[in-house]
Structures are given as structure tokens and as C-alpha cells.
Amino acid sequence: MGVKVIERHGSSLKDRLYIPAIAGGMKTTFKKFVTNLKDTSNLETLQYPEVQPTDITERYRGVHRLTKWDDGSEKCVACYMCATACPAQCIFIDAEERTDGVSEKRPKEFKIDLLECVFCGYCVDACPCDAIRMDTGIFSFTGDKREDFVVDKKRLMSHEAYTKEESDND
């Protein structure tokens, strides 16, 4: 069995300095800058947050919400599947025994740190009882301190599903 030797690129001084690559990137940036400077009518500017983007697809993953049964109780059974599937490890659940007979347990605390979340949707895919969704349509959120971005069970239960009709009425 023969061994194939592959020559490494980038061993010359020119390649190690990265100057040609930097110059090529700057050339592209400068060309775009000059084009935009000559004709500013083609530039799209939103006065965000007063004007919200309209090009968000229906598949966009917004802020999380916890779904409820018809009686208003949460569907979550505190199985920890969402927290286990989360690559950012930003979901924190503390379970308690459930006394209403719907299931064995429920989350006493359910928190998601939105600053840590990468909005991948793995928590939604992992949930066996469709208790967590990312269909709120809330894609921008602000806060003054870090604690404002840690959403708790009460806030997650208060979010409603975003529908196309709601956006048309705005």
C-alpha cells in the first residue's frame, strides 16, 4: 500500500504574510463601498426597532414558548429531554410531583437563558409531548441587565403562537 504525500500550501513567505488575501478582501469591500456611495437609492435602511423586518419566513425560530392543555395547565412533563438535547446547555428545569393526575411530574421551574441559546430548535425536536415550541414570532428582545434575558416558566407560558393573520393586522 503506497503512501500519498500531499504538498502543503502556504509555505512561501507571500502566503504566510496573508497580504495578498487581505488586499483582495479590501479590494472587494472598497469596490462595494464606492458603488454604494455613488448610488444611495439602492440602499435599504430600516428604522429599527420602529419598523420591523417583513422578510422573515414562517420557518424562523423565534423566542420559545411552553404550550398548555385545554385546561390551562402546562404540557411539559419535566422529562429533561429538551435540556439534554440543547447544545448550548441553556435550559434549566427543576421538577416537582404533579397532583392533578395528568402526568407524574411537571416543572416547578423552567428557565431558558436567551443569551446562551443558539436558537437551533433541538429542544423542540427532542420534546416527546410537544410542550416547547419556537413559533412566537418574537425575534428581537431587549433588556437592561442579564437577568432580563433569562425567561422563566410564567413568561414562557404567556407567549402565544405567532400566526400570519396577526402580522397582516399590524
Rank of each mutant, 00 (worst) to 15 (best):
E7P: 00
P20C: 00
G10E: 04
I6F: 12
I19R: 06
M26G: 06
T29I: 15
T29V: 15
M26S: 10
G10R: 04
A21Q: 13
G10W: 02
G24I: 06
D15Y: 02
Y18E: 06
F30Q: 12
P20K: 01
R16L: 01
K32E: 11
Y18G: 03
R16F: 03
N36G: 14
G24S: 10
L13S: 04
S11Q: 10
I6S: 13
G10A: 03
P20Y: 02
K32Q: 13
G25K: 07
G24N: 12
S11N: 11
A23I: 11
L17P: 03
L37I: 09
E7S: 14
K27S: 09
L13M: 08
A21S: 12
G10Y: 05
I22K: 12
H9F: 12
G10I: 02
K32C: 07
T29D: 09
N36S: 14
K14H: 05
E7K: 15
A21G: 07
K31G: 05
E7D: 12
L13R: 04
F33C: 11
L13V: 05
K32V: 14
P20M: 04
M26P: 00
L37S: 11
I19V: 15
R8C: 05
A23P: 00
G24L: 10
K31S: 14
F33E: 04
T28H: 08
V34A: 09
I22P: 00
R8I: 04
I22C: 03
L37H: 06
L37D: 04
L17E: 02
D15R: 04
M26A: 15
G10Q: 05
A21M: 11
G10P: 01
K14V: 08
I19M: 07
L17G: 06
P20V: 05
G10V: 02
V34C: 06
K27M: 09
P20I: 01
K32W: 09
H9K: 15
K31H: 09
Y18D: 04
K31I: 11
E7M: 12
I22Y: 05
K14D: 03
G25F: 06
R16K: 07
V34T: 08
I19P: 00
A23D: 08
D15L: 02
I22G: 03
D15M: 00
G25A: 07
T29M: 14
T35H: 14
T35C: 08
M26H: 09
A21L: 13
K31R: 15
A23H: 08
G10H: 03
L17M: 10
A21F: 10
G24D: 07
F33N: 07
G10C: 01
I22S: 01
T28G: 06
G10K: 04
F30P: 00
G25L: 12
